[in-house]
Amino acid sequence: MQIFVKTLTGKTITLEVEPSDTIENVKAKIQDKEGIPPDQQRLIFNGKQLEDGRTLSDYNIQKDSTLHLVLR
């Protein structure tokens, strides 16, 4: 499925993911596309910070959902 990740600069990254993917996996995909190390990434969905060990389906993230990427 496709999800979107919006950065603070207003750029939107499109990712191909599975609901069973962990947040860690998603961060690795963002690193592949953008070169941002996962330990600098914080992903936010519906105002909640997403934890590495959880999956997209844990957070009820579905296709065409938009996550927000904050760098630390």
Rank of each mutant, 00 (worst) to 15 (best):
Q2H: 10
Q2F: 11
Q2T: 07
V5E: 00
V5M: 12
K6L: 07
K6D: 06
T7M: 07
T7K: 15
T9M: 13
T9Y: 02
T9H: 04
G10V: 06
K11P: 05
T12M: 13
T12N: 08
T12V: 06
L15K: 00
E18T: 06
E18K: 15
P19G: 12
S20M: 05
S20A: 13
D21V: 09
T22M: 03
T22L: 07
T22W: 13
I23L: 13
I23H: 05
I23P: 10
I23W: 01
E24L: 08
E24K: 02
N25K: 05
N25E: 12
V26A: 13
V26T: 11
K27R: 10
K27A: 02
A28Y: 14
A28L: 15
A28R: 11
K29V: 12
K29M: 04
Q31D: 13
Q31S: 08
D32E: 08
E34S: 13
E34F: 06
G35M: 08
I36S: 09
I36H: 03
P37I: 14
P37F: 08
P38E: 10
D39W: 09
Q40I: 14
R42D: 12
R42A: 11
L43M: 07
F45G: 12
F45E: 02
F45M: 15
G47H: 14
K48E: 15
K48M: 13
K48P: 02
Q49I: 08
L50S: 01
E51K: 06
T55N: 15
S57G: 14
D58I: 15
Y59P: 00
Y59R: 01
I61L: 02
Q62A: 08
K63Y: 03
K63E: 10
K63V: 05
K63W: 06
D64W: 14
D64Y: 03
S65K: 09
T66D: 12
T66Y: 04
T66N: 14
L67T: 01
L67Y: 01
L67I: 03
H68I: 15
H68R: 09
H68M: 03
V70W: 03
V70P: 01
L71I: 10
R72S: 10
R72W: 06
R72T: 14
